[in-house]
Computed example of a mutant assay.
Amino acid sequence: MAGFLIAIISGALMSLQGAFNTNVTKASSVWVTAMFVQLTALATCAIMWVIDGRPDIMKLFKVDNKVTLLGGVIGAFITFTVIKSISGLGIAKAEVTIVVAQIIVSYLLGLFGLFGSEKTTFSWIKLVSLLITVAGVCMFYFLGNPSTD
């Protein structure tokens, strides 16, 4: 139950961050905003690391798959792409699309057991669920918006 609640908070925070970052971009640029976001994230993580008792940082480099250390680089591009998608689509369409992409990629990562994720078995019901989700996004995009012609 705690994991479910934390996931809800995470989703809410991601939407808020996307809206905040898109607004900040109006006063600067996408990359300046992304840099500021990453720098404030670094400061926050440093503070939390101290509060957490300063666990050994060097253990970070003992990770088995070194490519997974690129999470911060990916984070910079996440910030960039979220800002660009919200400014191009609006917050609701962008966030719905982002979440569905996350679901699909997460399922594929699990299905193939990539990057240390727990390997899951293929399930037709999960595939059908993904297709229904994609259909829901299409409905969100194209239905319910009265024409202004």
Rank of each mutant, 00 (worst) to 15 (best):
2 A>W: 11
3 G>E: 10
5 L>P: 02
5 L>M: 09
9 I>N: 07
11 G>Y: 11
12 A>G: 15
13 L>F: 12
16 L>T: 06
16 L>V: 11
18 G>R: 01
21 N>F: 01
22 T>I: 05
23 N>M: 07
27 A>I: 02
28 S>K: 10
31 W>T: 07
33 T>S: 08
34 A>F: 02
34 A>I: 03
37 V>R: 02
39 L>P: 03
44 T>G: 10
47 I>F: 15
49 W>E: 04
53 G>S: 01
58 M>Y: 12
59 K>Q: 10
59 K>S: 14
63 V>C: 04
63 V>W: 08
64 D>C: 02
65 N>H: 09
65 N>P: 01
70 L>W: 02
70 L>N: 02
71 G>C: 03
73 V>K: 00
74 I>K: 06
74 I>Y: 12
74 I>W: 05
74 I>G: 03
75 G>N: 05
77 F>K: 06
77 F>I: 13
78 I>A: 12
80 F>T: 02
81 T>M: 06
81 T>V: 07
82 V>N: 00
85 S>T: 12
85 S>F: 08
86 I>K: 05
86 I>W: 05
88 G>A: 14
89 L>Q: 10
90 G>E: 08
90 G>Y: 06
92 A>Q: 07
93 K>D: 12
93 K>M: 08
93 K>R: 15
94 A>T: 07
99 V>Q: 12
103 I>K: 05
105 V>T: 09
106 S>N: 09
108 L>Q: 06
109 L>T: 00
114 L>T: 05
114 L>V: 09
118 E>L: 10
119 K>Q: 13
119 K>L: 04
120 T>R: 04
121 T>E: 11
122 F>C: 03
123 S>A: 13
124 W>R: 02
124 W>S: 05
125 I>Y: 06
126 K>H: 09
127 L>H: 09
130 L>A: 03
135 A>C: 09
136 G>N: 02
137 V>T: 13
137 V>I: 15
139 M>H: 12
140 F>V: 14
140 F>W: 13
141 Y>C: 15
144 G>Q: 09
145 N>T: 12
147 S>I: 10
148 T>H: 11
149 D>E: 15
